[in-house]
Nucleic acid binder design. Structure first.
Lengths: 232, 232
DNA sequence: CGGCATCCGGGAAGATACTG
DNA sequence: CAGTATCTTCCCGGATGCCG
């Protein structure tokens, strides 16, 4: 009976449409697929990392999505060298090229009237939102290294020449480091919550040059919300 | 028992995630939703127009998607003035702002190794693909009006100053008009099928300046396909 | 622990028929 | 033409359990 695995149906629903959009949806249009891609944009992750970052996905669905994305050529299963011989999932080059797509979705959705910013966010989400919403014009003549610590997930950014480069990595050598949760980082960046208040309320710690931190959190302007037209 | 309709659950699955991507997927992540948006990018359509353009969508699913997109603020139901007092669906301003998102998905998916260009395409799809894949550098010092007739769907384009402007509209005043099907137009643009051959085989007619037509079909280069990495 | 198979209940999608 | 009603199929989500 195990032999049925070999002959198992490879079929899945797909749009019979040669349009590129439809094909994109065949690739990443299933539930959770694009969020799995999002979580891998800053580098490989393990199965359990993905589960932690994606509240609500169940193990079997994650397995299915990883299989689907792998067979589409968007990611690869890879075994890390010993001693950490754990398995990770890593985007292919083409998989990484989905970042502009994902970013433009985020930028567009930021105008939604229905967006609820109080829900949880993953570390990758907030880091990706910085890449997305960064306004170079606000960063003139700033040159700094910024660190981020969300529990054990750390990131390092370099701000120079009106460019912002954010990567996963240790916070060594940062001029200033934010130590907080993704959610509180979002409050500082997008709800304009004063850093002094956040520090007082133990929502955040800042190590290093506080002045740079104050500037940094102003570099990510949100677009104006869309106003629903009145019913005709 | 009909009263149950009033109290029916408005609930739907949603990602409990404040990330913009997740919110975008809550808005347009359901099956068919983004393709409905695509079909409306060149202007309003009727219910039955949408069904024709979206091979495979069933009436009840289309109804649900239109309801969902309307309540999200992405489109509006509108009644045309008499005598054509038919109902149409039209994107809101914010709905039209999804075009960059949709285009970037199409551009990204064009690199997919698995893309099958032999499937059917809608007229809007092929017109949108031109907006997406247009290469300004190839259009130096070309100034022309180009018409497109796909059955009774007609479009008009203006090519000037290395810009291409495509709209729904009559082909009046075009320097050259392509009369064909969306699928054959795709063959000319993306499979490099010679126009002379297509005309011989009755796959296409060209009215007006044939020379402009020959140039026009070279303005839309496809990106290189992604090569699947060898299994490790 | 990490990853995958299996079963089950609910709900969304698909197909068809039908109505104003 | 513009949708509803109904039925079936399949996907998603949760729980459990196996195996390295």
């Amino acid at each position: 009976m195990k032999l049925q695995k070999i002959t198992k149906k490879e079929k899945q629903r797909h749009y019979e449409d040669a349009c590129g959009i439809a094909h994109a949806l065949d690739l990443v249009g299933e539930r959770w697929a694009l969020l799995v891609m999002r979580e891998l944009l800053f580098g490989p992750k393990r199965f359990s990392d993905l589960r932690e970052s994606l509240p609500g996905i169940s193990a079997n669905v994650l397995t299915q999505r990883l299989e689907g994305l792998e067979s589409a050529g968007l990611l690869m299963k890879r075994k890390l060298p010993p001693p950490a011989a754990s398995q990770v999932y890593e985007l292919t080059d083409w998989g990484y090229e989905s970042e502009p797509v994902i970013r433009s979705m985020g930028r567009w959705a930021a105008r939604s009237p229905a967006h609820d910013p109080t829900l949880p966010v993953s570390a990758v989400s907030i880091m990706l939102s910085m890449r997305t919403m960064f306004d170079p014009a606000r960063a003139r003549s700033v040159d700094a290294r910024i660190g981020f610590r969300f529990g054990d997930e750390t990131f390092i950014g370099r701000l120079v020449d009106e460019k912002l480069d954010l990567q996963r990595g240790t916070t060594d050598g940062a001029d200033v480091t934010f130590i907080t949760t993704p959610r509180h980082m979002a409050a500082a960046l997008y709800a304009g919550m004063p850093l002094s208040l956040m520090i007082d309320k133990k929502m955040m710690q800042i190590e290093g040059n506080r002045k740079i931190a104050e500037i940094y959190v102003t570099l990510f302007p949100l677009p104006e919300k869309f106003k629903l037209p009145a019913k005709v």
